[in-house]
Write a protein that binds this DNA or RNA. Structure first.
Lengths: 254, 254
DNA sequence: CATCCATTCCGTACGGCGTACGAGAAAGTT
DNA sequence: AACTTTCTCGTACGCCGTACGGAATGGATG
């Protein structure tokens, strides 16, 4: 039957055992779980997820490496806590009127989260823990489209579509930023330095469309006073499609 | 001016120096770069990207670990080669008639690629190398929407939207698969085993929408004879939006 | 043929990682 | 004061990517 429940849940929800009445014996913890998680977020924001090592985190907290394991069962669980907290710490703005603006807001809020915490995009191999931060966020996201005529499954899919899109734009941008940071040259520099070599190396293979479009896109993106043009185009199309679907369903209710 | 060009380009395009006339001196390589890259892909398909270690790869090839470095400068470059090859090895189907079907095909082909090589989704921290596989694919993707009335930048954004969406659906599915594989229990099992604990741990916090929608979605997804329902909904909306945009531009040409 | 040398192969080693283990330190209970 | 529980953390193990240098190989040269 019911396998033992997942022990990480208590940690995610900071649930204190019910035996809170009995004051804890033994040595006291110097820090709180939140201290550890926040420090982890700070490091990941600065150095990326691979740059977050248990030893570094411990030393930034003034702890020995192994002391971390009294706060958190392991690195994976720490990252899960970081994700939930990063998602949950954001204040969720009030919903505007109009489905379209509401859905746009859902996408933009997630986009901002991914920009502030780019390591969120690197957390792929990890299970999606259900914690308070993720739950608050999901509830808020659903509230954007509650009552507009979508059934439950469509609501879930709509939210997934919006935040998936926001993630993928953020990921594309972050990839470029990371590249420029690690190579020390801008995209334009790279193409300038490698145009000749590319000509040699491609040795006659022709890419008429890719060449033309790639060049235009490259120019446009590096102009980039507004770095988020990619966001606007895609979001507009997605919202068009979603609004049309909603209106069509309104026309023919179940 | 032109910094030295990126040495990995020659490897990506398998460009052989021009000094091909002079036969190589010294010991011969036992394998080819493609052998190494293919073996890497095989391992990553099986064990995921973190499971691909240089030592394991070498041993599967019957080599010492350090011998790999005569084929490939390092692990990151190997992964770049794997990506380009995984993208490029696919045969690209002929384009159907009609923009809508063409764009749908672009998304579906990328979706299939991500399903066949889930590790593609984990390659986030890496630069996007321009190799023959990626170039062929991009050219093919652009050919789907060439001449429909979009300008160059919109063409790039349209492709980005389609493949970004395909990736994010694939990623959501892969996350679930990975979870079930690592925990040994299905999603349904997990919820069954943890429902009580969640009730305790959430301690009165209420999620009316998330609870209702999450439950409906969970049921629907695990029914999942068609595991790709999420794909259909989002793709339909995106295509609706894109087609509307294209038709509107056709109506008012520049 | 012998010699030379470019090239590949690979054993060893270094510094880093996550974390298992167990000894010592601190704080509440008796 | 003695005991028990809990936190702290030094050491160590087995992984990782890869720098280095020596051994093996085989075409080019005499």
């Amino acid at each position: 039957m019911s396998d033992h429940p997942d022990p990480v849940l208590r940690l995610l929800w900071r649930y204190d055992d019910g035996a809170a009445s009995a004051p804890r014996r033994g040595r006291k913890q110097r820090l709180s779980v939140d201290d550890v998680v926040d420090a982890g977020i700070r490091i990941a924001d600065r150095d990326g997820l691979p740059g977050l090592s248990m030893r570094l985190l411990a030393s930034e907290l003034g702890l020995g490496a192994m002391s971390l394991y009294t706060y958190v069962p392991g690195r994976d669980e720490l990252v899960a806590l970081m994700v939930d907290r990063a998602l949950g710490r954001r204040k969720l703005p009030a919903m505007p009127d109009g489905v379209r603006d509401r859905m746009a807001l859902v996408a933009r809020v997630h986009y901002e989260a991914c920009q502030q915490h780019p390591w969120l995009l690197e957390v792929s191999g990890l299970r999606a823990w259900v914690g308070p931060g993720a739950s608050d966020l999901y509830e808020w996201q659903l509230s954007a489209i509650e009552g507009v005529g979508l059934d439950d499954i469509e609501m879930d899919q709509t939210v997934a579509l919006l935040i998936g899109f926001a993630s993928s734009v953020a990921q594309a941008q972050e990839r470029i930023r990371a590249e420029e940071r690690s190579s020390g040259m801008t995209q334009a520099d790279w193409w300038a330095a490698n145009a000749d070599e590319l000509g040699v190396v491609m040795a006659g293979r022709e890419y008429p469309l890719a060449g033309r479009v790639g060049a235009a896109a490259g120019e446009a993106y590096q102009a980039a006073t507004d770095p988020a043009r990619e966001m606007e185009f895609g979001l507009a199309r997605i919202l068009d499609g979603l609004v049309a679907h909603i209106e069509q369903k309104r026309g023919t209710p179940a």
